[in-house]
C-alpha cells in the first residue's frame, strides 16, 4: 500500500477519495521461470512505478488467503499477465473461484518463450501496452 492515500496522503483523504481502489488497476503476473514470466513481472513493476496501477500478489490468491482472494473479487479493474499458454495465473484464478479479467498471454503477443531471461525493452513496452489495453476494456 506504499503509494496509496492510505499511507497518509491527507489531501486525497480530505477530498473523500481516499482508500477505495477505484482508480487503481490491480496488476498480477505469473512471474514464472522463463523470459516471458519475468517480462510479465517487469511490466507490472513498471506500470506500478508509473502510477498506472498497483502490483499485487498472485501467490496470495493461489494460497487462497482471504484478503487476497476477496481483493481480487472486489477490485473494479485488473490485469492478469501469463507468460505463456500453460496459464498458471489463469489456473490460480479458477482454483480460487475468482473471475479472471484483463487477461493477457505474452506468447500470444508474438514473444517467444525461452530460458535466457533476457528482457528486451521493446518486449516490455509491448506487454505494458497490451496490459493497458486489457484494462481499458473493463471501463
Amino acid at each position: 500500500m506504499s503509494d496509496s492515500c492510505c499511507d497518509g496522503n491527507a489531501r486525497k483523504a480530505q477530498a473523500g477519495d481516499c482508500c477505495a481502489p477505484d482508480g487503481n488497476v490491480m496488476l498480477l503476473s505469473c512471474s514464472g521461470g522463463s523470459n516471458v514470466g519475468q517480462l510479465a513481472n517487469q511490466a507490472c513493476v513498471e506500470l506500478t512505478q508509473e502510477g498506472f496501477g498497483k502490483i499485487f500478489c498472485l501467490a496470495g490468491i493461489g494460497g487462497k488467503l482471504s484478503g487476497f482472494v476477496r481483493s481480487a473479487k472486489d477490485v473494479p479493474r485488473m490485469v492478469v499477465l501469463d507468460g505463456c499458454e500453460v496459464g498458471c495465473a489463469k489456473a490460480i484464478f479458477k482454483e480460487a473461484g475468482t473471475l479472471l479479467r484483463g487477461y493477457v498471454v505474452l506468447t500470444d503477443l508474438g514473444i517467444s518463450k525461452n530460458k535466457d531471461f533476457a528482457r528486451k525493452r521493446e518486449d516490455i513496452d509491448q506487454v505494458k501496452a497490451a496490459a493497458k489495453q486489457a484494462s481499458q476494456a473493463q471501463v
Binding site: M1, G8, C19, P21, M26, G67, R70, S71, D74
Partner: peptide
C-alpha cells in the same frame, strides 16, 4: 495502522474482516 492493514493482504480499504475472513475490500 497501515502496517496492520497491509498484513491483512487487502488491495485497498475500507475492508471488513469477520472472525478472520475478509468480507469486503474497497467498498
Amino acid at each position: 495502522n497501515t502496517m496492520e492493514i497491509a498484513a491483512a493482504g487487502v488491495f485497498g480499504t475500507p475492508a471488513v474482516i469477520i472472525d478472520g475472513d475478509v468480507k469486503v475490500v474497497g467498498k
